[in-house]
Design a protein around this nucleic acid. Structure first.
Length: 430
RNA sequence: GACCCUGUCGUCUAGCCUGGUCUAGGACAAGAGCUUUUCAAGCUCUCGACACGGGUUCAAAUCCCGUCAGGGUCACCA
């Protein structure tokens, strides 16, 4: 039975790199019908925070990665101590006293050539004579990362260790510990790192790093997962859009890339838009409600959910991020549209009193106020006036929405309603 | 610096294992145009890469060696 684990340290939020590692572990477990274990590496009492644990668990669930078992290293100190004592007894480790009289347990490194088979990179060779003696138990009684990691992976029967590239150099140290403790070496698979667009480390400067930031910006979890998947794996057949469910069937760890990939927000936006297009407008509307309340666009206890859903339908195909809806559709919620000054200058600096007045009259006189009739009456008007449709369409759009872009004008008028549309037009009549 | 990993369009990748079908395919971005209602949406087109140098071979993106470049790790942090 395949057993993999994701082992984050709660010293910060779950970031993009961690999310990707979790994804490949989860995916591998699913594709092998194995177990996905979550282990919180909270041995550093100073830096580990409960709030980060909560945040990590929340983000993992949001991404859709549910775990089968959950462990905390802080509750397993006796296990590490026990194995350290074992090594002490066997003469494979020794005690070192600090000047203050505190004791640490140090592992004697046996010089040798170490070969490790990596599922992604093939065989990697190391020279243990280059490795210094390793601290197993620190003088405060807590275990070091490499030691706790090995003890846990062995006791939790982890069969495959899938982790970031940055752990390659930990592998020989851990292999030595497996050997000394008499544990069987698991399979290793080192994933390439995700870099920023500048080729450097992914950092806040290059873009958001926390998974929760992407949630807050309006990225759908399926889209983020799809993008992360593409960052070192390809479903084949020139496909880009692949659901996690499909990926489970197509995934083979041997096909994972070895090269570091740059995190490209533009492509993420594109993928997110692809998912937004086909997403359920009701769900999207519900996602947006808190944001719209926060902006005072809707009233918490009294708003028209059906109307909101309709508006979401109007915009969802063009949004890169769901939250952009709040900016793009603001004119549906505000009494007065927020004017884009450049647009106002370009389309409303001329006097359109006559045209606006005539059109607003026609809207008022419309017996059947629907999209088809609104357009028909508009076409009639421009024909009578002998002007091009676009000469009037753009100014009207700016007057109604404050923007030069947006959904089709006649839909905008319809959903804005007779009264609001006329009112906004009349404002420009001198 | 030492050790390790990696090197195909600006970016993500397919191809590499099992050399010829690769005048290197797709996607994002960018540029141009169409959509005579805009656009960040849609459609069409264009630009654009095998890091470099040696081998091996009839033939190399694909195999070998070297160089260079980028990244990672060298903590009583994880």
């Amino acid at each position: 039975m395949v057993r993999v684990r994701f082992a984050p340290s709660p010293t910060g939020n779950l970031h993009i790199g961690g999310g990707r590692t979790a994804l490949f572990n989860w995916l591998f477990a699913q594709s092998q019908k194995g177990k996905f274990i979550l282990r919180i590496e909270d041995t550093d009492k100073e830096r580990s925070k409960k709030e980060f644990v909560d945040e990590i668990l929340f983000s993992l669930k949001w991404l859709g990665f549910n775990w089968d078992e959950l462990y905390y290293q802080s509750r397993r100190f006796d296990r590490y101590r026990m194995h350290a004592d074992k090594l002490l007894k066997a003469g494979l480790a020794y005690i070192e006293k600090s000047p203050e009289g505190k004791e640490a347990i140090i592992f004697k490194v046996n010089p040798q050539k170490i070969k490790v088979d990596d599922l992604i990179r093939g065989q990697i060779e190391f020279d243990a004579s280059l490795i210094k003696p390793q601290v197993l138990i620190k003088s405060d009684g807590s275990p070091t990362y490499n030691f706790a990691c090995v003890v846990d992976d062995a006791e939790m029967n982890i069969t495959h260790i899938i982790r970031g590239d940055d752990h390659i150099s930990n592998t020989p140290k851990q292999a030595l510990l497996y050997q000394a403790l008499g544990f069987e070496l698991p399979q290793f698979a080192h994933l390439p790192l995700i870099m920023g667009m500048d080729g450097g480390r992914l950092s806040k400067r290059t873009g958001a790093t926390a998974i929760s930031d992407y949630r807050k910006m309006g990225y759908l979890p399926e889209a983020l997962v799809n993008y992360l998947l593409l960052l070192s794996w390809s479903p084949g057949n020139n496909r880009e859009l692949v659901s996690i469910k499909e990926a489970v069937g197509l995934f083979d760890i041997k096909n994972v890339n070895r090269t570091a990939a740059a995190f490209d927000l533009k492509k993420l936006d594109w993928i997110n838009n692809q998912y937004l297009k086909s997403a359920d407008p009701e769900k999207l509307a519900d996602e947006l409600i808190p944001l719209l309340i926060e902006r005072n666009y809707i009233n918490k206890d009294n708003f028209d959910r059906g109307y909101l859903i309709t508006l979401v339908k109007l915009f969802q195909a063009r949004l890169p991020r769901l939250n952009d809806f709040a900016d793009w559709a603001d004119f549906f919620f505000l009494d007065e549209p927020v004017m884009d000054e450049a647009a106002k200058e370009k389309y409303l600096s001329q006097d359109l009193s006559k045209e606006f007045k005539l059109f607003s009259q026609r809207l008022n006189d419309l017996a059947n106020f629907d999209i088809v009739n609104i357009e028909a009456s508009f076409r009639e008007l421009v024909a009578e006036l002998g002007i091009e449709a676009k000469k009037l369409i753009h100014p009207i759009r700016v007057a109604l929405t404050g923007k030069t872009i947006g959904p089709g004008l006649f839909e905008v008028i319809y959903y804005l309603g007779k009264e609001r549309s006329s009112k906004r037009l009349l404002k420009w009549i001198k």
